[in-house]
Design a protein around this nucleic acid. Structure first.
Lengths: 252, 252
DNA sequence: CGGTGTGTTGAAAGGTGTCAATGCTAGTGG
DNA sequence: CCACTAGCATTGACACCTTTCAACACACCG
C-alpha cells in the first residue's frame, strides 16, 4: 500500500530538510488523497482552465509546459517523485501553464483549502512547503540561464546533470544510470532547440564518452567531464539546511 | 514620509487581490523596516552568499541575475515597485541568484522570522504572500518560453508588453509611456541575445511604428500591433481573483 | 507485414553572433 | 566655453550555430 509513511513521496521529500515527527508524518498523509494511476500523455492541468487541485507526484514523470499558438511548445520543468504540482492552486484561479504525464504516473491529490490551513497550523510544515516552492523557483531560474546563455552542447549537459541530481535525491539513480522517458522532440522543447539538433548534440555527447543513451535509459559515463562541460554547480538543488535563525525559531 | 499606508508599495500590491483591513495594513507596515536609498549598480544579494533578509521594492528598479564563469550573465527578472525580493530567505540559507539595483532604489527590509510568523498568524496575508510568489513564478515561466521558443523580434515585443502591464499595475505608466532604465546590453542579458542584435531589433520595432525609444524613456505607440507580434496574453499577470473556495474560506 | 512514431543523417538556408569601426551624448576639467 | 573622456548606441561585413527540409533507418505493434 502506498499510503504509508515509509514510501510516501512527499514525506520522503520533506525529510530532506526536516526531521519529521510521527505526528507531522500523519498530517502529511491525511493531507493526500490517493488517486488512480494516470496513463502517459494525459493532461492533468490545462493552461487557462480552472485550477482546483494541488497534486503530489508519487511515481512517474510529468512535465510543465506552455503552448504557443503556432503549435510550438516550451517545457518549463519536470515533476518527479515528491514534487508538488500546482502548489499555487490555493491562490490562482486559473492555471498559467499546462501539466502532462510523460509516463504512467501515480498522483496524490491535495485539497488547496487544507494546504492553506496547514500554513497556519504547522509552521514547520509551512516552511517545508515554502522550501519546495523555493527549490522549484531555483530550478526554473537555472532553466532560464541554461536556455538564454549556454550553447546547445553545454545546455544538454547541464540538463542531464540536473536530472541526475534530482533523481538521485529521491533514490531513482543506480550506478549513474536512470530511466529516461523523454523523446528527443520533448528534449528539444525543453532546451529551446529542434529535435534534429538535439539528436546531433546527444550523439556528440556519446561520441565524447560522456553519456550512454539508449531508448529509455540514460547512463552518465563521465560525470566529471560532463560537469566541466556544463559548468554545473548543484548548489541550487542541494540547499537542505534552513537558515540558523529559522531553524532555532522552529525548534523550541 | 514613505512609511504610511497610502503609498506603501507592498500594501498597494496586496490590495490587488485583497481588501486589506486597517489592522492588516498596520501589520504589513510593522513588518517593514525602512532602509536608505541604494545607488544604481549595487548588489543587494549575491549568489552563494548568505541570504538573511527579504526586501520589498518601494521605488526604483532592481534585477535578479545569474553570472556564468565566462563572464556572461543572464537576467531572470526585474523587481519593480511592490515586488518582494528573496521571499524565500526564510527557507534558503544561501542565495541561488544575485540581485542588483538598476536605478536608485528604495527598499524596505523584512525579517524572515517575522514573515514566517505571519504565515500562521494571518491566513489572509499568507495567501497574499503566496500569491506574490505564484505571480513571480508565472513571470519566470513566461521568461523561459520567451527565450526558448520565440525569435528575437517577438521576444523583445513580448518583454516590452510584460513590463508595460507590470508597471501599469503599480501606476507607473502614463499614456503608454514609462521610464526605461535598461541599457541595450542589459536587455540582451535578459532576452538571451547580444547587444548588437538587441539594437537591430529595437530599431526594427521603431521602424515598424510599434514603439518609440529614447534613452531612458519607452513609449508603446501601437499596443495592438505589438500584441499581435508578440502573441501576448496577459493572463499570467492579471490573476487577481482568488479561487472561490479559498475566498469564502478566508472571509467568515 | 505494413504502419507509425521516433531516431539519424545530409545539404542548404537563415537567424544571431562576432568583430570592429564610427557616432552620439553627458559629464568633467581646464 | 571648449576639449576631452567614457559609456552607450549604431552600423557593416562576415562567420557560425542552429534550423529547415527531406530522405532514410529502425523498432515496436496490431
Amino acid at each position: 500500500m502506498d499510503m504509508s509513511t515509509k514510501n510516501n513521496a512527499l514525506i520522503l521529500k520533506f525529510s530532506l530538510i526536516l526531521d519529521l515527527t510521527e505526528e507531522e508524518k500523519s498530517i502529511l498523509l491525511s493531507l493526500q488523497n490517493e488517486c488512480d494511476s494516470i496513463p502517459p500523455q494525459t493532461d492533468i492541468v490545462v493552461e487557462g482552465e480552472d485550477l482546483s487541485t494541488t497534486y503530489i507526484v508519487q511515481s512517474g514523470w510529468t512535465y510543465t509546459y506552455k503552448l504557443l499558438p503556432d503549435g510550438k511548445q516550451q517545457i518549463l520543468n519536470f515533476n518527479l517523485c515528491g514534487d508538488i504540482i500546482g502548489p499555487y492552486a490555493m491562490v490562482l484561479k486559473q492555471a498559467d501553464h499546462s501539466v502532462r504525464t510523460l509516463t504512467e504516473t501515480k498522483l496524490f491529490k491535495v485539497d488547496p483549502e487544507k494546504l492553506l490551513d496547514l500554513l497556519s497550523e504547522s509552521p514547520r510544515l509551512a516552511v517545508a512547503i515554502f522550501w519546495s516552492a523555493a527549490r522549484d523557483g531555483a530550478i526554473l531560474g537555472e532553466q532560464v540561464t541554461r536556455i538564454g546563455r549556454r550553447p546547445a552542447y553545454e545546455r544538454m549537459a547541464h540538463l542531464l546533470l540536473e536530472l541526475l541530481r534530482r533523481l538521485e535525491s529521491v533514490g531513482l539513480v543506480v550506478d549513474d544510470k536512470f530511466d529516461f522517458p523523454l523523446t528527443q522532440e520533448l528534449l528539444a522543447d525543453t532546451l529551446g532547440l529542434t529535435s534534429v539538433h538535439v539528436n546531433r548534440t546527444i550523439r556528440a555527447l556519446k561520441k565524447d564518452g560522456l553519456i550512454n543513451y539508449k531508448s529509455d535509459l540514460m547512463k552518465i559515463i563521465n560525470q566529471d567531464g560532463l560537469r566541466k562541460v556544463a559548468d554545473f554547480d548543484a548548489n541550487y538543488l542541494e540547499q537542505t539546511d534552513l537558515p540558523d535563525e529559522i531553524a532555532s525559531h522552529l525548534d523550541p
